[in-house]
Computed example of a mutant assay.
Amino acid sequence: MRICVISFDFWNYDAHIVDELRKKGVDAHHINIGAYRHRNFPARLKNTFSKIILQRNLKNEMRQKMILDELGKLGKQDQILVINPELIERRYHEEIKKFTNKYIAYLYDSLARCPADHLVDLFDEIFSFDKNDAQRHHFKLITNYNYLSEIKIQEKAIYDLVYLASFDNRIFLLSKIIKKLQDLKLSCHVVIVGKKTWKKNLNLQINPSITYTRKRIKHSEIPGYYSKGRVLLDLTRDNQTGLSFRIFESMALKKKIITNNPTVKDYDFYNSENILIIDEDLSNFSTAFFETPYQDLPPDIYRKYTLENWVETVFNL
């Protein structure tokens, strides 16, 4: 069987799908449009000029042409999975679809944040991590996956709470949480990543507990980063009901987690001893949650959220 995954893989989560497929003996390939780079400085300058003057992003066009070039080399695929298809224009989707017998989409964002309504008729199957979208549009609901091997970290945590995320408006709630932690005399370590981190000065979000960086953290370093904390923090983006990867990373690392996503209580792995759903005013945020140990999940529930099960479900293996 031949399967191709197409995505903009900023955090390198999608590459795990291809690795798992290969473990199962599938001839699998990943076309990461996020990995496309300008050939040289003049090409970058030309793209900048085009965006400003012509309102045309040449880099996006080249990324999409790259997909067709790569598929031309790979040949016909039994299945092609596109993650967040709104990043690709319809005319390119129509060409991509010619390379496969089964065209699948996975929406790892709500339609409210990343509209893809105009593309849904192109796909044979559509999976979504967002409960509201799945119910409203009759998509197949599936969560993100646990890509890590199950492991209980032995070394003692340095901080009470750790958080790693991209720079966006979650920074305002984060600042309130840090203040709450300080009031409770609990420590935290926060890293905010992204090209827009310079905006912290405009928003006056200067806090010694927060490290801002434009440099992308290597995917392989994420588990080590989370191992430094007793508890992980998960903050949802606007218009998001789906579960982030942090929920599943905490599951694999056997770490407790604090989240502002109320839908987590609807899943069979939910345990109030492991997961604290914070109130909007943070009134239920207390030291008590930090003082009790993580409770292991039953093996059958744990496996349900592994990458292996995700791959078997999406590709019907």
Rank of each mutant, 00 (worst) to 15 (best):
N32M: 08
A116W: 10
T143K: 06
N203A: 08
Y103N: 03
D69R: 10
A252M: 12
R90G: 07
F127P: 00
R113Q: 09
K131R: 11
Y92G: 06
H138I: 01
E20G: 04
L202N: 02
N144H: 08
P85A: 13
E95I: 13
L297K: 05
K51E: 05
Y103M: 13
D168T: 09
Q240Y: 11
R246M: 09
Y145T: 03
A165R: 03
L141A: 03
K152I: 02
I67L: 12
H30T: 04
Q55F: 10
E150C: 02
I53T: 04
S175Q: 12
P223D: 08
H29E: 14
Q77Y: 06
K51C: 08
T197N: 07
N146L: 02
S166I: 07
K218R: 12
N316A: 14
L173F: 01
K199S: 07
I83C: 05
D69P: 00
F41C: 00
L243G: 13
I142Q: 10
I257L: 15
K97E: 07
N132I: 15
D234A: 08
Y302P: 10
D130A: 03
I301M: 04
T100Q: 09
G229S: 08
L141E: 10
D279N: 15
K199R: 14
E94Y: 11
C188G: 05
S283D: 06
W198C: 02
L243H: 05
E291N: 15
K254M: 15
Y103Q: 06
L233I: 09
E280M: 01
K200M: 07
D168H: 12
R230C: 02
I277W: 00
I177D: 03
N146S: 03
D27H: 13
N47A: 15
